[in-house]
Every structure is written in C-alpha cells, then in structure tokens.
C-alpha cells in the first residue's frame, strides 16, 4: 500500500537545459511536494508543459527525469520489475492520455483482461459501469471502431477495474461533454471512495469535475 507520493526537485530531462524562465509549482520545486492517499489533486497547465510526462514518471513508464519521486519515502527508481508489476495490479490505477486500449479486442474484453489480472469486482460490475457511463450499447464493439470519446470511457472503466491507492488520470475527459464529465466524475469518486484512493488528475483547462483538495500549476 502506498500512503504518500512525494516529489522533490523534479524536472524532465528535456526541460533541464531550458529551465531559465520556468514558472511551475512542481518542476524543480525546492520544497517536497507530498500527495496523500485520499486527496484530490489537479495538475493544470497549457499544452507542452509536461503533464503526461509527470503521470508517466509516477507510473514508472518513463525515467527520463532529474530529481526524486518517492512512494512512502522510497525512491521509485530503485523499484524492480516485480515490484512495479505488483503496484500496477494493486496500488496504481492509470489512465494514459492516449488511452492505450487494445484495438483488436472489444470494449468488454479490454476491461476483462485487466480484471483477469486483478480479480477485482464481480463480472457484472463491467456492464453496470458501461451503463453508468452511457456506452452500454457499445460494450461488445471492437475498440478500434469506437469514437475517441467512447474509447476514453472504456479506458476509464479499465483503470477502475483494480484496487488502488492512487488513481492517475491524464486528461480523462478531454473528449467528453459536461454531462459525460459529471457521470465519469461520480463514477471515479465512488470507486476511489471504496478504497480510499487518492486521485491525481491533469487538465488543460477542462478538468474532471471533482472537489480538488489541491491544485498545482505545472
């Protein structure tokens, strides 16, 4: 279980050379930023400031950064593959901006493959979730044939198909209207509430409609 994520002096390597005029709450922060389990954090910025990089660093997908990210004080650079695999099944839920669904599988199968790994939630949970997010009629469609907005919701359901301490959402509603945004927010809030997970959301100005405890400008 991860209780806190702490970030100190973090900067993507690509920004390291041109950090002169950097105005950021997170990049190269002198004080340690601590995000607690149960909190609701929004990271806002315009495009190209490294939101997706931040999420990828925390999820262990990329390591091209300077500075430190730690889970409960342990530097995540030191985690081995088996540990990352375990964290991705049990502690870290992740919604990448590009969704990264398997286009050759159906929407349902994309969620099922994650559930087969985590054993989280009963089988009927999938249909309920599709119903709640308004895509029940597309549940057996091939993901490759779905609209981007539909795919985004499938990816959100997949991210929720596991227990978690932190939910990392990279621009989760960039392709959704306000109504869908509200439905997704309620769904995520409910799922996070059941496990006490913290939520980190990025946005370019159209955030997921949650009650955030902290907002950072990147």
């Amino acid at each position: 279980m991860i209780q806190t994520i702490s970030i100190h002096g973090l900067i993507p390597e690509v920004f390291a050379d041109e950090n002169a005029g950097l105005q950021s709450d997170i990049w190269l922060s002198d004080r340690t930023i601590t995000i607690d389990r149960g909190s609701r954090v929004l990271v806002e910025s315009s495009s190209g400031k490294g939101k997706s990089s931040l999420i990828s660093f925390i999820y262990g997908r990329r390591t091209d950064y300077n500075g430190t990210i730690a889970f409960d004080g342990n530097d995540i650079r030191l985690l081995d593959k088996a540990r990352w695999t375990a964290l991705r099944r049990r502690a870290l839920a992740w919604l990448p901006q590009e969704m990264l669904l398997f286009p050759e599988l159906t929407a349902r199968e994309n969620v099922e493959i994650k559930m087969s790994l985590t054993g989280w939630r009963p089988a009927e949970w999938i249909e309920e979730a599709f119903e709640r997010l308004g895509i029940a009629d597309r549940i057996d469609a091939q993901v490759g044939r779905m609209s981007v907005g539909q795919q985004q919701r499938v990816a959100i359901i997949r991210a929720m198909a596991q227990p978690s301490d932190f939910i990392l959402l990279d621009e989760p509603v960039s392709h959704l209207d306000t109504e869908s945004n509200r439905a997704v927010a309620a769904f995520i809030e409910e799922e996070a509430g059941s496990t006490g997970a913290g939520i980190i959301v990025t946005s370019v100005g159209n955030p997921l409609l949650l009650n955030y405890t902290t907002t950072y400008a990147l």
């Binding site: 991705r88 099944r89 398997f102």
Partner: peptide, 13 residues
C-alpha cells in the same frame, strides 16, 4: 507495442 502495454497493465514478463 502490445507487450509493452500488457506490462504497463501489470502483466509480468
């Protein structure tokens, strides 16, 4: 791409 994604999902090597 598929194998990387599977490992990001939590599948082991």
């Amino acid at each position: 791409h598929t194998t990387e994604l599977l490992m990001l999902e939590g599948f082991s090597a």
